[in-house]
Design a protein around this nucleic acid. Structure first.
Lengths: 131, 131
DNA sequence: ATTTTGATGTAAGAAAACCTAACATGTTAT
DNA sequence: ATAACATGTTAGGTTTTCTTACATCAAAAT
């Protein structure tokens, strides 16, 4: 656990800025939250505050969506990519999609034109904006 | 001119976040702007938006203030630290403080207890928050 | 060929966050 | 004692964001 990681999770950006950075509408961002793909922090006054990680995540969501994957599928995929490498193999629990369903999804992705297995995460890493 | 510099100047943070990051009150931040020590961007609706550079600058201001330097002095000092190394020597124009005044200021700084010449810029570099 | 579903747009009303301007307060310097 | 400086506080107004609800449009299912 590399201490300095805390910073990428620091809630910093209001939705207006995130809209610009990720090129998404407020509606889209809130919809993804509604479907539990992201869970931005909130101010005392209930305004959303996004971290750098949140924004990276939104870019991944955007990417996966463009590949024709739906909320459920994206949720599943992000859930895996979220785990620490250690857990990643061990924890294969609580699938909200049956294996059958996931297989169908992935098959669909395979058949989609263009980019194949380049959904290898870090789709649009926000770190390009800094330093 | 290293191209990627653009990003540190990107207006991203509303004043509420900056208050936390720099540990300054809104009043203080606006006061420094009033005295032209910073010039944050504005949204279409006139809300201030600060860049990483702006926040670094605020931390420098805070540091200099704690050393007993006033607005005019800080403005002068930051003006110098702002220049690119190339210009820095060439451009010694339009001092809004006389040389006498500046000398007095710097003498005062020298005599202040504690930290001496550690005002060597990059006082509280914000980059520590990222990566 | 309809009907459903999934993702997004849009509108309305309320509340939070921010804005400027003005006056108040506590130091430090003259 | 007065003046200058940095900051606090209050007031009234505007922008941004919030939730909720309904509308739209394409793709999938029937």
């Amino acid at each position: 656990m590399g201490g300095s990681e805390i910073r990428r999770t620091m809630p910093l950006f209001p939705i207006g800025i995130v809209m610009q950075l990720a090129d998404l509408s407020a509606r889209q961002i809130r919809y993804y939250e509604e479907h539990e793909l992201i869970a931005p922090a909130r101010t005392e006054g209930n305004r959303r505050l996004f971290s750098l990680n949140d924004i990276d995540r939104l870019l991944e969501i955007k990417d996966l969506l463009e590949q024709g994957i739906n909320m459920a599928g994206i949720k599943k995929i992000l859930a895996v990519s979220q785990k620490e490498p250690a857990e990643r193999d061990t924890v294969a629990k609580k699938p909200e999609l049956t294996d059958d369903e996931l297989r169908t999804l992935l098959k669909k992705e395979m058949l989609s034109p263009g980019k194949i297995s380049r959904s290898s995460l870090r789709a649009g890493d926000l770190s390009r904006f800094f330093r």
